[in-house]
C-alpha cells in the first residue's frame, strides 16, 4: 500500500480522493499520503480490457471504495438483476472498503421500454418513496452481501408530494433498511443555494449569503443521528450569480463554505471516512492530493482539540439540540 500514514491515530478518519482516468498514471507512479481511492463502479463494468488491468494495479497499492451511480435506488421500476450481478462481481473482485450509491431514481418505463436516465434524479420524501427505496436497498444489500452507503443528492427540481424533510427521510431509510449514509456536504450547500429557485421561498439565502447557507446545511446535519453516517464527500463547483442554479459539477477546489461545514460535520459525527471528489476541469494529481491533505489537517485539528476539551459525546448532544 502507498499510504504513508505511519502513525495512523485511531481517532482520525480515513481520507481519500476520487480517481479518474486522467490520474491513473500519477496514482501509480507518485505515492500519495491518502488512505483510499474511490472509483465509479460503472467505469469498470466491462468484462475485461485495460480498465481492469489499471484497477488491479491500483488496488495493489491503495484501498478501494466503489461508488456506483446507476442503481437508482429510489426507482419504482427496480434495477435489472444483471446490473446488480455486475456490481456484485466488482465487489467480489476488488473487495472495496466502502460501497455506495445514491438516494435517487434512474429507472422508469418510457413508451413501454425500461429506460435508464443516466443521471441521479430526485424523489419526493414520503412514505411511498421510502417503501420503494427501502425495498431496493435491502435487495441490493442482500445481493451484494454487505451494507451499502446511500448518498444525498443535489437536486434541480423538487417533485411534489414530500411529507418529510430530506434528512428525516434518509434517517428512516437507514433505520428500515440497515444501510448507512454517505453525506455529500457540497450537495447540501448546492441545495441550500438553489432553494429559492426550487421553491420560491422568499427568506432562503442567495449564493452570496454564506452564513445563512451554512446555517441551513448545519440544520440538515443536526437531523441525522451520528450512528447512521458512514462516509463524507467533499467537492467544489462552479460559482454562480444570484438567481442562477448552482450545478454540482465537481470542477473546483473544495469551497471555504464546505470546509467550514466539514469541520462541523466531524465535530458532529466523529472521525468519518472522507473523500475529495473532482470530476471536471481536473487539476494536477498534486493539487488533488493537496485537497485531501487539507481535509486531514482539519480532522487532526478537530480531534486533537476534542481530546483536550470536553468529551465528544457531550459536544454532539449539544449540537443535536440546536434546531434553530
Amino acid at each position: 500500500m502507498f499510504s504513508l500514514n505511519e502513525e495512523a491515530t485511531v481517532n482520525l478518519p480515513l481520507i481519500g480522493v476520487g480517481l479518474r482516468h486522467h490520474h491513473f498514471e500519477d496514482a501509480l507512479n507518485s505515492p500519495a499520503n491518502i488512505d483510499f481511492i474511490e472509483v465509479h463502479a460503472e467505469n469498470f463494468f466491462a468484462n475485461g480490457g485495460a480498465s481492469h488491468a489499471v484497477l488491479s494495479d491500483i488496488s495493489q497499492h491503495y484501498s478501494i471504495s466503489l461508488h456506483a451511480t446507476s442503481l437508482g435506488l429510489g426507482s419504482a421500476l427496480p434495477a435489472p438483476q444483471e446490473q446488480l450481478e455486475q456490481l456484485t462481481n466488482l465487489v467480489e473482485r476488488y473487495q472495496p472498503i466502502l460501497l455506495s450509491d445514491h438516494a435517487c431514481f434512474s429507472w422508469a418505463e418510457v413508451s413501454g421500454t425500461s429506460t435508464h436516465a443516466g443521471d441521479l434524479l430526485p424523489v419526493p420524501f414520503n412514505d411511498e418513496s421510502l417503501h420503494i427505496m427501502v425495498t431496493n436497498v435491502k435487495r441490493a444489500q442482500q445481493q451484494l452481501g454487505r451494507q451499502i452507503l446511500v448518498e444525498n443528492l443535489s437536486a434541480y427540481i423538487e417533485l411534489p408530494g414530500s411529507t418529510y424533510r430530506e434528512a428525516e427521510f434518509l434517517a428512516k431509510l437507514c433505520l428500515q433498511s440497515g444501510c448507512k449514509l454517505l453525506i455529500d456536504l457540497n450537495n447540501l450547500i448546492v441545495n441550500a443555494i438553489n432553494q429559492p429557485l426550487l421553491n420560491f421561498v422568499p427568506k432562503t439565502p442567495s449564493p452570496s449569503d454564506q452564513a445563512s447557507i451554512l446555517a441551513l446545511a448545519k440544520q440538515w446535519l443536526n437531523r441525522i443521528p451520528a450512528e447512521y453516517v458512514g462516509e463524507i464527500h467533499l467537492a467544489g463547483c462552479t460559482p454562480v450569480e444570484d438567481g442562477e442554479f448552482m450545478i454540482d459539477d465537481h470542477s473546483q477546489p473544495v469551497s471555504d463554505t464546505v470546509w467550514h461545514l466539514y469541520r462541523y460535520a466531524l465535530q458532529r459525527f466523529g472521525p468519518i471516512a472522507t473523500l475529495v471528489e473532482w470530476d471536471e476541469n481536473l487539476p494536477s494529481w498534486d493539487t488533488l492530493i493537496g485537497e485531501a491533505e487539507k481535509a486531514k489537517a482539519i480532522a487532526e485539528d478537530v480531534f486533537s482539540t476534542a481530546l483536550l476539551a470536553e468529551p465528544l459525546n457531550t459536544n454532539i448532544e449539544h449540537l443535536a439540540g440546536d434546531k434553530s
Partner: peptide
C-alpha cells in the same frame, strides 16, 4: 399520481 407514474413522466420529459 403514483411514484411510478411520476417517474415515468419526469423521464419522458427529460428524454
Amino acid at each position: 399520481m403514483s411514484i411510478k407514474q411520476q417517474q415515468t413522466q419526469m423521464l419522458s420529459a427529460i428524454f
